[in-house]
Design a protein around this nucleic acid. Structure first.
Ligand code: SF4
Ligand code: SF4
Lengths: 134, 134
DNA sequence: TAATATAAGACCGTATTAGTCGTATTTATG
DNA sequence: CATAAATACGACTAATACGGTCTTATATTA
């Protein structure tokens, strides 16, 4: 309940790892997975998403790997979650992208009041950047 | 991701319903379920938990039902979640009650920084009371 | 005694999440 | 040019959580 997914955690761990070192330095999914004892294939997929979204750069081939593409203070946790989960973090489905398909939507009396909580969550996730994680 | 469960939502809807009316007024699970088009049995179980925790009072028998036992401004959302889920809302399993069984616990580098986020979430959920939901 | 309500817990089906596998592609290097 | 090491990508599987249902017991009032 309200927990970050493992994918997000793995992503944060990897991003933090990159942020700790010299900017632009390249790391392979393999070495990160080994270092933090995280399933390689799963981490790889996460990194691919982050790469596709431009958060990290990727280079293929024998000396390839991933490198941080942004400054840590520019990387909001909310953004990272959105990329990895492929949807914005929400407190209730009706606050998700085009999510008016809650069975109860019309009679729901807590939707509007909950909006304030959603806003505050957004603020929290936006104000927390990779810099704070380092 | 980060979403409140249906059980919690149903609980909040019911509590709000009670809070909207006269203090001490009795409502049956059935009428609330009908009014908000929510599955009766599920709501019933939620109300039983809330009752057991003293948030609402329950009276059995033919004219029985549930009634709010506290003032809305004394009822934190964090508390309601804890009761219904039977565990505190956490951002990661390692912040749950006795939750050091994360496979990665020892090597995890984000646990500590995430603590700040957990604290802020706590604050958010504590500062939001039933009064704000009404 | 019948009707109506809560109490409690087992049960089930589905959706989500976590993790795996296979295969293709890119690229440095001997 | 062959090989090794890396990313890319999608299908697949396993485990778990979630939402919902069913059954039976108990209490209370008319
Ligand atoms: S409409 Fe109400 S019940 Fe449905 S998702 Fe939004 S808040 Fe939850
Ligand atoms: S230890 Fe790290 S990975 Fe494990 S639950 Fe806590 S934060 Fe997530």
């Amino acid at each position: 309940m309200l927990q970050l997914s493992k994918k997000v955690e793995y992503g944060l761990i990897a991003l933090r790892h990159m942020a700790m070192n010299q900017r632009g330095q390249v790391f392979t999914a393999k070495e990160i997975a080994a270092k933090y004892d995280v399933p390689y294939e799963l981490l790889a997929k996460v990194l691919q998403k982050l790469s596709k979204a431009g958060v990290i750069t990727s280079t293929q081939g024998i000396h390839g790997g991933y490198a941080l593409a942004r400054k840590p203070n520019e990387l909001q946790v909310s953004h990272i979650i959105s990329i990895i989960e492929e949807e914005k973090p929400t407190i209730a489905e009706c606050y998700a992208e085009g999510g008016e398909d809650c069975q109860i939507f019309n009679v729901c009396t807590i939707r509007k009041p909950l909006g304030k909580m959603q806003q505050n969550l957004n603020l929290l996730l936006e104000n927390t950047t990779l810099e704070q994680i380092v």
